[in-house]
Design a protein around this nucleic acid. Structure first.
Lengths: 145, 145
DNA sequence: CAGACAACTGCAATTTAATTGCATATACTA
DNA sequence: TAGTATATGCAATTAAATTGCAGTTGTCTG
């Protein structure tokens, strides 16, 4: 995962520079895996109001700064978008890996293969998630934190 | 979509035959698209208690009778599993199509292509969803019901 | 650098979704 | 058809998400 600069990202997207917004970006870029809304809330709950967090995440998603990955429970997970994402088009068409042991979600460096749609169906975007055990959990079985 | 017989399905899975369970299967097999929990609740809310519906859906999923597809909003959608599904393994590895206009979810007759995982990652199941406009909405732009 | 405007944040209140416990009703078995 | 196990419905609870609004904080301009 490339090193990101929260302040630049905000500038690039015409967003005001506030400490809450910077903190959210810092936290999300901390780890190379996606982070869930509840985890974020747990980590930032003391500094950032619950509602503000929702709003920041929505703003970031709209602007193409984050992409959102739903896990099997319908919980939102967030990861930094690659630089080619824009407000109007997300280029997050890589495969995600959802570990069923530690529940982490990884953005893999694997593109989603082209799939031919049946007649009449027009696909704009694709989402693929693999479920299984990740490298860490395969190495040493571990419990979620 | 093959014609299903609710009573047989219940028998095959050692589930008691109740009118609520039959109704849920009837309703879900009505259409060839997956149906969301809220839609089901809207349709069956007069006959079946909200809580009972949750429980029936969970039971069916556990037993491999239904498979659950999460849409972009984290809402659960349900479709009848192909007959090869069992309690311990779902064979629903076909591509889903989520229409962003009418919000229907289709189970396509397209298998998810094999994708090679990075070293250390073991994938047990895969899920692929295409987002776009379905045949009906392509033919005549329409609003969701 | 100060003032003004627009936008963001936090709090309170509300809405919506999901879960749990328990009493009653219902299916299956002998 | 009586007995038992299980499913259902209701009430209450817990959790998640949204909305409105007042007060605060950034940014721009003069």
């Amino acid at each position: 995962m490339t090193k990101i600069n929260p302040v630049n990202i905000l500038k690039e997207h015409d967003l005001k520079h506030t400490k809450q917004r910077v903190r959210v970006l810092e936290e999300i870029s901390m780890d190379e895996v996606a982070i869930s809304q509840p985890e974020l809330e747990k980590k930032l709950g003391k500094e950032i109001d619950r509602v503000t967090l929702y709003r920041i995440l929505n703003t970031y998603e709209d602007k193409g700064i984050l992409h959102r990955i739903m896990d099997m429970n319908g919980t939102a997970n967030y990861a930094i978008c690659s630089s080619s994402c824009s407000e109007h088009h997300h280029h997050d068409e890589h495969v995600h890996f959802n570990c069923t042991s530690c529940f982490k979600i990884y953005c893999l460096e694997v593109r989603i293969p082209k799939i031919k749609m049946p007649d009449g169906f027009t696909a704009k975007t694709m989402s693929t998630t693999a479920y299984g055990t990740c490298e860490k959990c395969n190495a040493n079985p571990v419990k979620p934190d």
